[in-house]
């Protein structure tokens, strides 16, 4: 299965989304990420029982923080997929890339003067 999805995403692998911390997500935005998604296993199917549920809470907390500091919580999202859902993964990447393109560059990138080029070409 050689699925196409936009090359604008950088994938960071973690053993479980339970490893994803509030600081990881905040730092991504501090470094200028236009959008971040956390992709965990299906709810109820975490190998470590509840890692993806911890991640969901942390994502929601960071969304609140992003809203309050003016970056926008809509730039962060969490999805739950199984390892057999590659097609849906590619679809989500296309969707989220389009959404972030609509939102425009992150205000952090704009403020630091790094937002000079288009974020990505959306491949469909």
């Amino acid at each position: 299965m050689r699925l196409q999805y936009p090359p604008s995403v950088r994938i960071i692998e973690v053993p479980c989304t339970g490893k994803v911390d509030v600081m990881h997500l905040l730092m991504a935005f501090e470094y200028g990420a236009d959008g971040v998604i956390v992709v965990g296993c299906m709810e109820g199917e975490c190998h470590y029982s509840v890692g993806n549920l911890y991640a969901k809470k942390r994502v929601n907390r960071v969304k609140e923080i992003l809203d309050k500091v003016g970056v926008g919580g809509e730039r962060l999202a969490m999805y739950n997929l199984s390892s057999g859902m590659g097609g849906r993964f590619a679809e989500i990447i296309r969707e989220i890339t389009e959404k972030v393109m609509e939102l425009g560059p992150s205000p952090i990138r704009v403020a630091t003067g790094k937002a000079t080029r288009p974020i990505a070409e959306v491949t469909t």
Partner: peptide, 19 residues
Amino acid sequence: LKEAKVLASALRLYFTQAG
């Protein structure tokens, strides 16, 4: 320390986005 880092990061984002 953890909470201090989170708060500092949030403040940095706030000030940076405000230019």
